[in-house]
């Protein structure tokens, strides 16, 4: 399975945010998107996640499982917001996403308890999500990536609000996902410490 992007461009209002971006990612490959604030990293990731319409170009999956029309159906998206409910416990949040998302073909998610362990917060999944600190909330949002299998991970500033230890832990999670044949697209300012990866430098407005 390969993720192919050809001549992608996106517009916000009058401005062309980026133009003619093409890349191809094979299983086990990562794309690191870098660039200054406002250069269109998040916009690119939202286009890839199917949340914004592309102005031109196309993205598709070559040789993936049948029955999926768009790559976003096979993707996890971790945006700036954590997509977890403050009123529910972490356990309830994770098990909701586990059963709502379901597994993509070719893999299985791990249990919510194991996902809590994997992000180093195994003991506190019984707490309401709103009680956790910003860093802990971010880690639990990452645990969401593990409870349901998706071959493609789209990560927008995944390590914001994390300490150095959690940074490392997250790099390990991403590396393990790549090892299993996953694809990762991440926008970040800090290096994620992933071995084999392509880089995409966003430059900003094209008027």
């Amino acid at each position: 399975m390969r993720l192919l992007v050809e001549g992608l461009s996106a517009r916000r209002g009058e401005d062309l945010i980026f133009n003619d971006i093409s890349f191809a990612l094979a299983p086990g490959e990562a794309l690191i998107v870098t660039g200054p604030n406002g250069s269109g990293k998040s916009t690119l990731l939202r286009v890839l996640a199917g949340l914004l319409a592309a102005e031109s170009g196309r993205l598709y999956i070559d040789g993936g499982p049948t029955g999926f029309k768009h790559p976003h159906e096979l993707s996890h998206y971790l945006g700036h917001r954590n997509a977890m409910k403050r009123e529910l416990t972490v356990e309830e949040n994770l098990s909701f996403w586990q059963s709502f998302l379901g597994d993509s073909p070719g893999g299985a998610g791990i249990s919510t308890a194991a996902a809590g362990e994997a992000v180093g917060l195994g003991g506190i999944t019984h707490l309401p999500f709103g009680y956790l600190s910003a860093g802990q909330q971010r880690r639990m949002a990452m645990a969401k990536l593990l409870v349901a299998h998706r071959p493609i991970w789209i990560l927008d500033e995944p390590t914001a609000a994390l300490d150095a230890g959690a940074d490392r832990l997250f790099s390990e999670l991403v590396a393990a996902h790549l090892e299993r044949g996953g694809i990762v697209i991440a926008a970040t300012h800090q290096p994620l410490g992933i071995g084999q990866s392509q880089a995409l430098q966003m430059k900003g407005f094209v008027h």
Binding site: A49, Y77, R81, N82
Partner: peptide, 13 residues
């Protein structure tokens, strides 16, 4: 929408 869940609801098959 405020907590970002809407994005994930929109992305699904």
């Amino acid at each position: 929408r405020e907590d970002g869940s809407l994005d994930l609801l929109l992305m699904q098959e």
